[in-house]
């Protein structure tokens, strides 16, 4: 039997230290601003930096329950029969990667573990490099038995944005005569029964810029009546909600969406118990940073209304 003191983990100490730091910092900031003194913005930047850095060092993380919009995508992949084909498009660059790469990895892992075939492509030139990362960390590392061309294929980048989408909705081969390794389309077994996007069972676009999910919905999902789902950077997520649930069946918005998906996946099957969960790890610092930002908003608003009452602001 462990004594209560022994049960204290590094994480508990980390949470305590971080929270004490944040609370003291906020109290100091509140005291300074309420007594009418200016706070240098650089102090605020530094404060945010430490609020984010400490949970990263102490590896604070929380559990998340999947919201319906995230769960919908999970259930869709679960319901696909073996040997279905899913297209995952990497429509992002390294700048968006911290947010959306975890989604791409988790989705690839989920599909491959269910023997679902994946067609990879990208509409962003730098998506190719991000794709390579998934290949080295997930595809080749965790699924060495999966074969290129049979279980997955990498079509690579194609310039043209909407133009590319407009063609592949009716004809893949016209846009991708070969895959990224110059293997001709007709010789890739995965495409034996796939002539266009209409033959796919699901399309997942991961991105946040243009061309991105909106273009996929406009040019492929809606015209071809093809099930679509998306993983997006947080900035654009609110603009995509109107497409749910009729035009996109599921949406992972920002790191939170990715963390929910990772948790859903990890809870579903013990084989995922040890999988890396970068998004969940990121949600620890995220949560503490949100507490700080919310406190700033509250302090700012109290000050605003107090000053307005005093007649300092008209």
């Amino acid at each position: 039997m462990l004594s209560p003191l022994m049960a204290i983990t590094v994480q508990d100490i980390g949470i305590t230290v971080s929270l004490v730091f944040i609370l003291l910092g906020l109290a100091w900031l509140a005291w300074r601003s309420f007594s009418g003194k200016e706070v240098d913005r650089r102090i605020i930047f530094l404060f945010i930096f430490f609020s984010v850095a400490m949970p990263v060092i102490f590896k604070i993380s929380f559990k998340f329950k999947a919201t319906p919009i995230v769960n919908a995508l999970y259930e869709k992949i679960e319901s696909l029969p073996n040997n279905s084909t899913v297209l995952i498009s990497y429509d992002f660059d390294p700048a968006m990667a911290p947010e959306v790469q975890p989604m791409a990895d988790a989705l690839s892992r989920h599909c491959l573990s269910r023997d679902i075939k994946i067609v990879y492509m990208c509409l962003f030139p730098t998506g190719q490099g991000q794709l390579e990362q998934t290949f080295s960390t997930v595809v080749r590392n965790e699924f060495p038995e999966k074969q290129d061309g049979i279980d997955f294929v990498n079509l690579g980048y194609k310039a043209g944005g909407e133009g590319v989408l407009n063609v592949i909705v009716t004809d893949f081969e016209k846009m991708f005569p070969t895959d990224v390794n110059s293997v001709p389309y007709s010789e890739i077994p995965i495409f034996d029964n796939i002539k266009s996007c209409k033959n796919l069972d699901l399309i997942i676009s991961i991105g946040g810029g243009r061309p991105g999910i909106k273009e996929w919905v406009l040019f492929v999902g809606d015209p071809g009546n093809i099930p679509m789902a998306a993983g997006v950077a947080a900035v654009v997520a609110p603009q995509l909600y109107p497409y749910y649930p009729n035009q996109i069946l599921g949406l992972l918005g920002g790191v939170k969406g990715a963390a929910e998906y990772e948790n859903r996946l990890r809870d579903s099957d013990p084989k995922f118990a040890d999988m890396p969960t970068p998004a969940t790890t990121m949600m620890g610092p995220q949560t503490l940073a949100h507490i700080v930002v919310m406190s700033f908003i509250i302090i700012g608003n109290i000050l605003f209304f107090r000053n307005r009452k005093r007649g300092e602001i008209s």
Binding site: I48, F49, V52, A53, V56, I57, K59, A95, A97, P98, E99, A233, A234, V235, A237, P238, Q239, G253, G254, V255, K256, M282, P285, Q286, A289, H290, V293
Partner: peptide, 30 residues
Amino acid sequence: GASFGYTVMGRISLLVGRITFLFKDWLEII
């Protein structure tokens, strides 16, 4: 407001990404 909140989350994610890089790949303290 929702859009603003999401943006904050997005920006913090990028900061976390960079801090993780600095601490993990560069300084190797985690």
